[in-house]
Design a protein around this nucleic acid. Sequence first.
DNA 1: GAAGTTATTATACACTTGAATAATAGCGAC
DNA 2: GTCGCTATTATTCAAGTGTATAATAACTTC
Lengths: 204, 204
Amino acid sequence: MSRRSFHRAPEGERRQELIEATLDCISEFGLKGATVRQIAVRAGVTAGLVRHYFDSKDQMVAEAYRAVIASLTEKAKNVEGDPTTRLKDFIAINLTEPVADSRSVSLWAAFISQVRVDPVLAEIHREGYLAFRNALQDLLSDFLAAKGRAASSEECRRYAIAINGLVDGLWVEGCLAGDLFRDGELVGIAMASVEALLGLPIEA
Amino acid sequence: MSRRSFHRAPEGERRQELIEATLDCISEFGLKGATVRQIAVRAGVTAGLVRHYFDSKDQMVAEAYRAVIASLTEKAKNVEGDPTTRLKDFIAINLTEPVADSRSVSLWAAFISQVRVDPVLAEIHREGYLAFRNALQDLLSDFLAAKGRAASSEECRRYAIAINGLVDGLWVEGCLAGDLFRDGELVGIAMASVEALLGLPIEA
DNA sequence: GAAGTTATTATACACTTGAATAATAGCGAC
DNA sequence: GTCGCTATTATTCAAGTGTATAATAACTTC
């Protein structure tokens, strides 16, 4: 007859725990398996609490999507050093753990599949994609300039679209069936491909 | 008090209708919105009929996934003509309707997101991916040979991985946010990129 | 055209879902 | 300490889920 004891967490902390639990459930059980109850279990709370922090389950899921995009782009956008190093790191980071793992691609795909259904998710996606591609475009612009081959923004845009596509495609494949590739193989292929695309060696 | 009238369809036909209705629902409402009842409405039958044709809803969904993969790979694998034409068509087909449309990518993503959850879907995915990539690898092998630059199968494998990644990535981007690109721009970028990757002009 | 087969409908069932409500226990202020 | 606030639990609810079963109407065969 006694209630279970609990811990009163600071608001921000508990919100983040719930979002993390949401993502865990989506990646493990899929969107339809990520029920309020399952998420609550994962977060170590009871189901009712979700509605204390979020207006609805859908809102929580949307915030979870924002978190995914942030975690996918954060590391890639924070590369540092000279242009060559940054380009090299950008490619390597996106094709290596923790960005490249099956959990990430599961989450990404789950949300992508809803972009057509839910306009809120569509907008979040669009922002994230453009931010990512623009970061890459700036990076390429710097790189080409440093190599003495400064290019127009239109040219950089085309390079960014192609390389973004390449990296995304390899990322998906690597995450879904990593065992089909040797260690580091995808990074190697990506590096060589980018060199060929730009017609420049990446090595400093 | 009267039952609705109905039409007794040939087995194969009705099965296909149900699968098509399943895909419609998944692309429009997402995996969790594709309920047996909704699918039945779309197919113009009642919910009970689903279990007359399939052992379970899950089995029907798995067969629907097979159908998606088949439709995505079918057109690409059936390119004809000389090696150059086939390579060119392969790229163009995958980045143009009907292969490149938002319905396709929604379906693809919905299933991809379940690959981690459902081993049956994982196996279907793996088969489809390898078949697709191997078709591309053969195509590249023929193309390089025709251009007098015959390459080892290892070399072709690396090219196939890269180009497959590139095409897949551009396909996703184009399907999700086609309005960010000009008409035919993605095909153009893909063609130029493949030329750069192979170091050969594609034009005959 | 009558009989038999079975694809299809209609209904019911047990369970899960997201959400609303009321009770309560943790924790800071005093 | 005890009071007050509210984060958290416990319980309930209506709607929706996949599935099972029985009745029936469409088509085939003779």
